[in-house]
């Protein structure tokens, strides 16, 4: 097991920039994230009755379930476009390590999710009358999508080569992401219920710990994930 001492930032950014450029041209991923999350909002609206009494507590659950499920779609898409037309083979032929490619993809996915959240948060606030436009929630959201992007990119990279790839990703990704989802929901709920940093702090700590642990794990294991 070779561990590269240093990952060159230039190539990482080049991979991320390629994804961003592609996204700016066809807007496939961010639009799908938004539409899908919006639909989940609508469905949840029927599934659970949000009242003025429970909306601040239950609302964050709706928000993060929507983000988690939508991110599965986005992550899958980000690797399927590489697989179709054998773009991944081209990427693997470039003189950079597999880990570099995957870090670049992670950065790209993180930016897509962040872009979607910028629109999703105001929409959610308006639809459910739960104010998530707070600095504490932004920090929670950043840590959450950082974790989702890191773990998700790893699993998307390995599911894209399997049969039934659209099933493999959520089946692998969602159980691993449980600590992030619990923390995101609970942390956000503490804030929307009227709490401040102190109330959300322990959840933010779990999110940060998850992110650090899985970023390190990702850096160590990325090299094994793409096919020879």
């Amino acid at each position: 097991m070779k561990v590269r001492g240093r990952v060159p930032l230039g190539p990482v950014w080049a991979v991320a920039k390629k994804d961003l450029l592609l996204e700016v041209r066809n807007r496939e991923i961010v639009i799908s994230l938004l539409v899908f999350s919006g639909l989940i909002f609508i469905i949840f609206n029927f599934a659970i009755e949000l009242t003025s009494a429970n909306r601040d507590t239950v609302g964050p659950g709706v928000l993060w379930v929507a983000v988690a499920f939508a991110s599965v779609l986005g992550l899958n898409r980000s690797f399927i476009i590489e697989k179709d037309g054998n773009a991944l083979d081209g990427l693997l032929l470039t003189p950079v390590g597999r880990d570099t490619i995957l870090i670049g993809k992670t950065v790209g996915n993180f930016i897509f999710m962040a872009a979607a959240l910028v629109i999703l948060f105001p929409v959610f606030t308006a639809l459910f009358d739960v104010n998530v436009l707070k600095i504490e929630v932004f920090v929670i959201a950043l840590l959450t999508i950082l974790g989702l992007a890191t773990v998700g990119t790893m699993f998307a990279a390995l599911s894209v080569n399997t049969r039934a790839r659209e099933i493999m990703l959520p089946v692998l990704f969602l159980p691993i992401a449980v600590p992030i989802l619990i923390s995101a929901v609970e942390g956000t709920a503490r804030v929307t219920e009227g709490g401040g940093w102190g109330d959300a702090l322990q959840w933010i700590e779990i999110l940060a710990a998850f992110d650090v642990i899985f970023i390190v794990a990702a850096l160590l294991t990325f090299q094994f994930l793409l096919e020879d």
């Binding site: 773990v151 790893m154 699993f155 390995l158 692998l172 159980p175 691993i176 449980v178 600590p179 619990i182 923390s183 779990i206 710990a209 998850f210 642990i213 899985f214 794990a217 294991t221 094994f224 994930l225």
Partner: peptide, 16 residues
């Protein structure tokens, strides 16, 4: 890789 990530995840899941 999945097995290793899963084992790492256990304490986090439990704690959360």
């Amino acid at each position: 890789v999945v097995a290793i990530l899963g084992a790492i995840d256990v304490p986090l899941v439990y704690y959360a």
